[in-house]
Design a protein around this nucleic acid. Structure first.
Length: 190
DNA sequence: GTTTGGATTACT
DNA sequence: GTAATCCAAACA
């Protein structure tokens, strides 16, 4: 079952947690999400909404479940889902997936054979799945969507950790990942 | 028009 | 440890 827009009309932090274990599909490639991060439009200094008017405009002009995709460090596309909850809006950054289908295609795109290294980071998975700026603003939840999320029967132990690569609001435990997974960008320190 | 700061990755 | 590389925003 594809996730409908209802799924993304919720609290961004809950959505980030709940997306771990779901399947992300684009074309013939797919994988199980093992790592996400939440960013909220209110009171989160690390979110784009804090100092980017364009991000706030994006929220106003798009539905829950739309893709917010941007170029980071001038080289890597990062994929987010727009979340619009009653309590507040925000984004969920997809940070890592465990590859399922289309592995040879992904290996070619990423120029590596190591499956554990294919999609273990936000910039890596967009390359492997061929997601880029052309997809900015497109929907994850429509019938006509090129990419979408699916429910699964995965039994995954989800743990929370501090978000990675940000300088502000570092102490919030808004990174969600599968415990002891080999497919995440970074395991939680013990 | 110029400067600044990134939600990263691969390589040494 | 650090180079690679570019856009939006802020400033002048």
């Amino acid at each position: 079952m594809r996730l409908s827009s209802k799924f993304f009309e919720n609290d961004p932090v809950d959505c980030a947690k709940n997306l771990v274990g779901k399947r992300l599909v684009h074309g013939r490639c797919s994988g199980i999400i093992v790592e996400t991060e939440a960013y909220t439009a209110n009171n989160d200094e690390a979110a784009h909404t804090f100092n980017r008017p364009s991000a706030r405009t994006f929220i106003t002009n798009h539905e829950a479940g739309s893709a917010y995709i941007y170029l980071n460090y001038g080289m890597y596309w990062l994929a987010n889902v727009l979340i619009k909850g009653n309590q507040g809006h925000g984004f969920v950054l997809i940070r890592a997936i465990r590859p399922e289908k289309g592995i040879t295609t992904m290996q070619k795109r990423r120029a590596t054979k190591d499956v554990k290294n294919l999609c273990s980071g936000p910039g890596k998975l967009t390359i492997a799945l061929n997601i880029n700026g052309e997809h900015h603003g497109q929907s994850f939840t429509k019938k006509s969507s090129k990419f979408w999320f699916e429910d699964t029967n995965e039994k995954i132990r989800v743990i929370s950790d501090r978000r990675i690569g940000i300088s502000r609001s570092k102490d919030l435990l808004w990174r969600f990942l599968e415990d002891d997974s080999d497919f995440v960008s970074k395991k939680k320190g013990r």
